[in-house]
Design a protein around this nucleic acid. Structure first.
Lengths: 137, 137
DNA sequence: TATAATTGTTACTGTAAGTGTAACATATAT
DNA sequence: ATATATGTTACACTTACAGTAACAATTATA
C-alpha cells in the first residue's frame, strides 16, 4: 500500500470505530472498510503502538479508539503508520561525487522537497478525526 | 524511477546543457549525470517532445536547450516527464459502494491531496532553470 | 555512395517490491 | 476446556522496476 492509501484506509477504520463507539474486531472493520482482515490488523497494530487505538484479545476483544476524535490528528496517524517523513520525495544521489554539479542539484531538490513536506505536515496537523467526521456527515 | 527522481535527473541534464552551451550527446550527458545513456535518452526524448530540448541525429548530433534557462519552468519539466499530476497521491476506492462511508472518506482525501498538489504546482511554476543555476553556483 | 555516429524506441532479463492469504503463538472471557 | 481475539510471521504469486542491449531511422562527412 502506498503511504497515501494507508492513511485513507486508517482514517476509514478509525472513523468506523468512532461512529460505532464499541469494540469491533478486525473482521467487522475490514468488511466495513473493504480490505483483508489480516492486512488491517497489521495497520491497526501500528495505530495501537502509537496510542491511537486500544486493542483487546479474547472473546470480547476488538479495537476501540483510545482517545476522542478531536484529539486524533491526521499527522499523528501518518507518523504511526509510516516511518518516513510525510510523503517522502527522493533524489538519486548514488553516483554523485562530493561538490559535483550533480550533488548540488540534489541538495537543491532535497531543500525544495523538505519545504513541501513541512507544508504538508502543517496541513495535516490542523486536521483531526473529528474535523473529518463533521465534514463527511 | 520515481517522479521526483526523474525530475532531479532531468534538471541535472538540463543544467549540464545550459553550462556547456553546445550540442552534447547522450553518452556525455549520461556520464555527467551518472545514469545509463539509454535511460537518459528516454527521458530527453520526452523533454524534446515538450519543446524543452532540441535533438539532432547524426555525427554532429546531440542535445541542446531549445530556449533560455529563464524560460524553462520546473513545472513544465515535470509535466513533460510525467503524465499524472504533480506527485499524485492515491486512495483505494476499489470496494467502496456509492455514498458509502468509505467513499466519503475517499472524497475527503482526494480533495485534500488535490489542494496539496495545487500548492506544489504553484511552487514549481515559480522556479526556472536559471533560478536553480544561480542558486547552485 | 559508403561509413560512422547519433537519436528514439523496443525488447529482454534479472531483481526488487508489493499483494493477498494463510498459519499460528499468545491472550482472554465464559 | 473452549471459542474467539490480536499480533506477527511466512509464503506464494504477481507486478513493477532497473539496467542493459539491440536496432531501425537519421544525418554529416569522406
Amino acid at each position: 500500500m502506498s503511504a497515501s492509501t494507508k492513511l485513507s484506509t486508517s482514517v476509514k477504520a478509525l472513523s468506523f470505530l468512532a461512529l460505532e463507539n464499541k469494540p469491533k474486531n478486525s473482521t467487522e472493520i475490514a468488511d466495513a472498510v473493504g480490505i483483508n482482515a489480516s492486512k488491517l490488523r497489521r495497520l491497526l497494530s501500528l495505530l495501537g503502538k502509537a496510542g491511537i487505538v486500544k486493542s483487546d484479545s479474547g472473546m470480547l476483544g476488538g479495537f476501540t479508539l483510545n482517545k476522542p476524535p478531536n484529539q486524533i490528528h491526521l499527522q499523528e496517524i501518518y507518523c504511526a503508520i509510516e516511518d518516513r517523513k510525510a510523503f517522502y520525495l527522493n533524489v538519486n544521489d548514488d553516483n554523485s561525487k562530493k561538490n559535483s554539479h550533480s550533488q548540488k542539484v540534489n541538495y537543491f531538490f532535497l531543500n525544495l522537497f523538505s519545504d513541501i513536506q513541512v507544508e504538508i505536515e502543517n496541513k495535516m496537523t490542523d486536521i483531526t478525526l473529528k474535523n473529518i467526521l463533521d465534514k463527511i456527515n
